[in-house]
Write a protein that binds this DNA or RNA. Structure first.
Length: 855
RNA sequence: GCCGAUGUGGUGAAAUGGUAAACACAGCGGACUUAAAAUCCGCUGGAGGGCAACCUCCUUGCGGGUUCGAGUCCCGCCAUCGGCACCA
């Protein structure tokens, strides 16, 4: 109790109280279309946070940053007459729980449940207005049933000539063979080389490999060919670029995605191999430089290497190929500074001039991009230039750069030279002409290439969604939807097998689907569950469908490309999660299951919160701030308010406990506007609080605050909204008599930010002035309207400048005309002094603002 | 190397092309108190001048430009952070 007395206001009593009230009365339950209390006349607002992975460490202060922002928006929109969908859930599959299981034998489900319970308790202690009835958990069979169901949709779909997903049954109707169909599925099996990490005992996606090491743990990663499930995201590459246009996302994030997808326009050109009946097709973005191709390079893995290598070069080529195959990605990039390669002994014929050019292999050409073969134009490509210098290959100029540039290694546009019929043409025209020429001769054609690769979708793990697939006679097939959800087997031993064989192989009974069929042993990656969770929120308890049609139409509709009105989360998901979710959404859209082409209309990335030392928070630095401690010391409202007051939401900013104290003091000042303490230390409604109208000055402060806070919340400029509330509070603090109804209005404005304090004070005021306070929750009140008339003053201060420098100010009537103001300004002794008798050249008058006299 | 973001007091920051530094933090001074904490009131970008109320000059990473007027717009640099990195 003694520590209670040190508190400036009794937040530790009323915060849990209001959390209990909200929960008991389901204050933030959001009815769905079809529910008895659903009001279809209201517009909808779907505000979403990136749901957390419930780790064993609990919340860190970064979580409540975005969550508070969305909570303020959600509460504000609710008060502004919207049906607000503001849910929370758990992205709970994933490696940490599994690794913990390996260490301790505790089942991941047990760990996950405990962590979810802890996170829930923590989030509830912050007073977020979630509709907990819509909570989702990716590891819940009722949820992943539908993740598996969506996988089956991908498995049973292909992309047609119209660029849209269609059921593969259409291909069956067209009489395509089983094999042909398998080649077109959006979920398909591939033998491609993958990133195998021996320590983790799993294959990783390219995105999970950083600098040749695993993102988790930093273990070395090798390349090895393995049978994997892939998702054909590349079929959507163009749409994933194009359909960014209609979204309200930061341009920098759109750019990040566009670059990741990496569209580039160019041409395929086919070269004959000299002496044998083979051709090699290359992809180039600079077909205009074809005359400058002095050699050709194949990726070491290119299938034609065996065919074309001459006897004399065989040994060298074999050695080089083995060396590259052994190299990890890390080594391959590390050695990138120094080019390497081997001559195959073969020559290709340049189709434009019939020149014989040597064919090399080199690991700077990647098998996974384009055709895995390039024509090398060393004069106008940096990499080819480097390679040619190292191996003393000829360098031939075919582009004339503008004055002042060396042609050697010049890669920009210029004028074609030494290029036969292209000579004299600027690069762009030369590209068109050569493309037409190639097409006419049947030697090539214009093509578009993407950097984006198909999505490696299988993992050799236990704690993930099992694939609803079985294998029989070397062929895969889906299990019937009626068998979903397919639960993972119960395992005692979670250790990786140490071979690429997934841990599910240990569940021998589970594996055996029938006498002749075995289950797929891979599981889905963590991304799977987060690809569609926002849809499940719309109708989280539906057991008939992944989301009910009416609910999806209402919450995801609204006439914009994206369904979620606001999505807040960290930049770390700028590419992968957002790209994957967009891809799945488009497939579901094409198949008619959702009503918008995009999932997220408006995206905002919150900035990282650093430690007090300005460094990234980490256990090893000892600068981690635990939100539970802040709540205990200063209360949930202070934490919420501080996180928003620190600075712009998008910005990276350091934590400051002093700053928390600052907003805490502000909240205490608000408390004392209403409450006073007697000598025993107990609080009661202050005698200064009276049922009187606010004077003109307070009314103005209040209405300015209503206006600015409303506008700032829409802009997510919470820091400036809070400073305006501070200004308003300071004005009220200075008043002898506190007008009760004005304070109630102020509390409504404060309530989205500091909901506990606002509700408590409203209740206290209601006890004294029943007619003035809100009868129920402030969150059920309407956001106050401001009176523009209250903002207008009779007089405004006008600044007088001479030659742009501030020289004097005066208060003038608002209604004063330009001429009147100018007259007052010119009459000012200070203005005259600085005019020094020089003649007036020009006078600029901005009514209500300033006068600038130019002499 | 390429792409993007950021750069304003001692600190976090604020400013539709129109009074730079609102609002806070820290600091200093005062009131209350036996005292301290808490609270309340005031001062607080830099340099110079004046007994004083005040006054002058300078100041938004650096250098140019547009404009009556630039933290804000344009051009060129520098620094920090983030992303990508042989993608032909």
């Amino acid at each position: 109790m003694s520590s209670e007395q040190r508190k400036a206001f009794p937040f530790s009593e009323f915060e849990p109280k209001w959390q209990g009230e909200w929960e008991a009365k389901k204050a933030f339950r959001t009815p769905n279309p079809g529910d008895a209390d659903f009001d279809a006349s209201k517009p909808k607002y779907f505000v979403l946070d990136m749901f957390p992975y419930p780790s064993g460490n609990g919340l860190h202060v970064g979580h409540p940053e975005g969550y508070t922002a969305t909570d303020i928006i959600g509460r504000f929109k609710k008060m502004s007459g919207f049906n607000v969908l503001h849910p929370m859930g758990w992205d709970a599959f994933g490696l940490p729980a599994e690794q913990y299981a390996i260490k301790t034998g505790t089942h991941p489900r047990v760990t996950t449940e405990a962590n979810v319970a802890n996170f829930t308790k923590q989030l509830k202690s912050l007073g977020f207005a979630y509709d907990w009835d819509r909570e989702v958990n990716t590891t819940d069979p009722g949820y992943f049933k539908w993740t598996q169901w969506i996988f089956l949709k991908l498995y049973n779909s292909y992309v047609g000539d119209d660029g849209k997903a269609h059921p593969v049954s259409e291909l069956e109707d067209q009489g395509l063979s089983r094999e042909e169909i398998d080649h077109r599925r959006l979920a398909y099996v591939s033998e491609a080389p993958v990133n195998w990490c021996p320590q983790l005992g799993t294959v990783l996606a390219n995105e999970e490999v950083v600098d040749g090491k695993s993102e988790v743990g930093g273990f070395p990663v090798e390349r090895r060919p393995m049978r994997q499930w892939m998702l054909r995201i590349t079929a959507y590459a163009q749409r994933l670029i194009d359909e960014l246009d209609g979204l309200d996302w930061p341009e920098s994030i759109k750019l990040l995605q566009r670059n990741w997808i990496g569209r580039s326009e160019g041409a395929h050109v086919t070269f004959k191999v000299d002496g044998i009946d083979e051709t090699i097709t290359v992809f180039t973005t600079r077909p205009d430089t074809l005359f400058g191709a002095t050699y050709m390079v194949l990726a070491p893995e290119h299938r034609l290497v065996d065919e074309i290598t001459t006897e004399e070069q065989l040994a060298a080529v074999e050695e080089y190929r083995e060396k590259t195959a052994r190299k990890s990605d890390l080594e391959r990039t590390e050695l990138a500074k120094e080019k390497s390669g081997v001559f195959t002994g073969a020559y290709a014929i340049n189709p434009v001039n019939n020149e014989r050019i040597p064919i090399w292999i080199a690991d700077y050409v990647l098998m996974g991009y384009g055709t895995g073969a390039i024509m090398a134009v060393p004069a106008h490509d940096e990499r080819d230039f480097e390679f040619a210098k190292k191996f003393e290959l000829p360098i031939k100029q075919v582009v004339q750069p503008p004055e002042g540039h060396d042609w050697q290694g010049y890669t920009d546009n210029g004028i074609a030279v030494n290029s036969g019929f292209l000579d004299g043409l600027p690069t762009l025209e030369a590209k068109h002409k050569i493309a037409a020429w190639l097409e006419e001769k049947g030697l090539g054609k214009g093509t578009t290439n993407f950097k984006l690769r198909d999505w490696l979708f299988s993992r050799q793990r236990y704690w993930g969604e099992p694939f609803p697939i079985v294998w029989e006679d070397g062929q895969h097939r889906s299990i019937p939807e009626s068998e979903l959800p397919l639960l993972p087997p119960t395992l005692e031993d979670f250790k990786p097998t140490g071979t690429p064989e997934p841990p599910l192989s240990k569940a021998t009974g589970w594996v055996q689907y029938s006498a002749t069929a075995k289950r797929e042993l891979n599981t889905m990656p963590q991304w799977a569950g987060s690809c569609w969770y926002y849809l499940r929120y719309c109708d989280a308890r539906n057991s008939e469908r992944f989301v009910g049609e009416a609910a999806e139409k209402y919450w995801m509709g609204g006439g914009k490309p994206g369904g979620v009105d606001l999505y807040v989360g960290g930049t770390e998901h700028a590419v992968l999660h957002l790209l994957y979710a967009r891809f799945w959404h488009k497939v579901l859209f094409d198949l008619g299951y959702v009503s918008t082409p995009e999932p997220f209309q408006r995206l905002v990335n919150q900035g990282l919160i650093l430690g007090e030392d300005g460094q990234k928070m980490s256990k090893s630095r000892g600068n981690v701030v635990n939100p539970d401690d802040v709540v205990r010391e200063y209360g949930a409202d202070a934490l919420r308010l501080y996180e928003m007051f620190m600075g712009p939401l998008e910005q990276v900013k350091p934590w400051s406990m002093k700053g928390v104290e600052g907003v805490y003091r502000f909240l205490a000042r608000v408390w004392r506007l209403v409450m006073e303490q007697n000598e025993e230390g107990s609080w009661s409604v202050s005698a200064a609080l009276q049922d009187v109208p606010a004077n003109k000055q307070l009314t103005k402060a209040l209405h300015e605050t209503i206006k600015k806070c409303g506008e700032d919340i829409e802009k997510l400029s919470f820091n400036t909204a809070i400073s305006q509330m501070m200004v308003c509070t300071n004005a009220f603090t200075g008043a002898e008599v506190k007008p009760a109804s004005a304070i109630v209005t102020f509390l409504k404005v404060l309530s989205p930010f500091a909901p506990h304090l606002a509700e408590e004070l409203n209740q206290q005021i209601r006890a004294r002035f029943p007619a003035l306070a809100a009868p129920g929750f402030l969150s059920d009140e309407t956001w106050p309207a401001y009176d523009p008339a209250a903002l207008i003053e009779d007089e405004v201060e006008v600044v007088f400048q001479v030659n742009g420098k501030l020289r004097d100010k005066a208060r003038v009537p608002v209604a004063a005309s330009k001429e009147e103001i100018e007259k007052i300004a010119l009459a000012s002794p200070r203005v005259q002094e600085f005019m020094e008798g020089r003649p007036v050249k020009k006078v600029i008058v901005v009514p209500g603002k300033l006068v600038n006299v130019v002499v």
